[in-house]
Nucleic acid binder design. Structure first.
Length: 273
DNA sequence: CGGACAACCTGGCGGC
DNA sequence: TGCCGCCAGGTTGTCC
């Protein structure tokens, strides 16, 4: 579910209720949510640590505690939110982790598919050693991106999904960015001209920034921490629009399978050559 | 290095 | 209604 804009929206929504709070205890009903750390060890280590700050790196939610990082990955169906101790919300149906806070509230992690995780770690590098550049930060430049593309002959869509190149782009925004840049998803990365690389660089930034403004895309599972839906799906030009007319030329949008992922594009606007 | 594919899991949906 | 197969926004590891 969540790609960079969704994770960013969650982080922004949790900052106010979470920063400054102290963790007292934790609970889980699905131990693998903690990926190997016994819940008793997790609880003992987290106990008494305050949340100093919260930020996003790629699709990871990173809470800086006094002595550790609390790292959450939502994967496909994860939701993270803060609720009053006795409050019952819809997402609780799939809740697998709770952290008791010092103010009568709880941080809850809900995850229908159980792909996501909550970990305590000294740093993010150990957990995710090869994350690429943040696409919305200054380090992401047209020239640098062009150099990266030149080093790979794999399909450009597959490269956009590779978190070690650009971190945070997922299946939806890869399709949307390629459409905006008018580049066919099957084009070998090293076949893009400098102009095309620059156009794709700009398109990645544009689709991500717009989706953040719309507070993420609620196609199925994603919700903001307050339980409401994002609106970014309203801006999609190709994702989920198979057979519908291209917004530019009217040609029906095609859906193909590549890198095991659904891939949407306009066969007229996005040429192979 | 790259591509294919399985694994991790469950829910929702379309088809019959 | 019920059952079945298929699909899903992510990441990692293995095999060839």
């Amino acid at each position: 579910m969540p790609e960079l804009p969704e994770v960013e929206t969650v982080v922004r929504g949790l900052r106010e209720p979470l920063v400054g709070r102290t963790i007292l205890d934790v609970w889980t009903d699905w131990p693998n949510t903690l990926r190997g750390m016994p819940v008793a060890d997790f609880a003992a280590r987290a106990h008494g640590q305050a949340v100093r700050s919260i930020h996003r790196r790629a699709k990871y939610i990173v809470c800086t505690l006094d002595h550790d990082l609390l790292v959450v990955h939502l994967k496909m169906t994860g939701r993270l939110y803060v609720a009053e101790n006795d409050a019952v919300v819809e997402a609780d149906r799939w809740v697998h982790f709770r952290a008791q806070l010092d103010n009568g509230q709880q941080l809850r992690f809900s995850d229908a598919r159980k792909f996501g995780f909550v970990k305590l770690a000294p740093n993010l590098e150990t957990l995710a050693p090869r994350l690429g550049v943040e696409p919305l930060e200054d380090g992401f430049t047209p020239a640098g991106f062009s150099l990266q593309l030149a080093r790979h002959r794999t399909a450009i869509k597959a490269l956009l999904l590779d978190q070690s190149i650009v971190a945070g782009v997922g299946n939806i925004y890869a399709d949307e960015a390629l459409y905006l840049a008018r580049i066919h998803p099957l084009r070998p990365a090293n076949s893009l001209s400098e102009d095309e690389a620059a156009a794709l660089h700009a398109a990645i930034r544009a689709v991500l920034a717009e989706a953040i403004e719309r507070e993420g895309a609620s196609i199925s599972w994603y919700r903001k921490p307050d339980g409401s839906r994002g609106e970014a799906q309203r801006g999609f030009a190709v994702y989920g629009r198979e057979g519908e007319p291209c917004l530019t030329c009217g040609t029906p949008i095609e859906k193909i399978r590549m890198a095991q992922r659904g891939t949407h594009f306009c066969p007229n606007c996005q040429r192979k050559s």
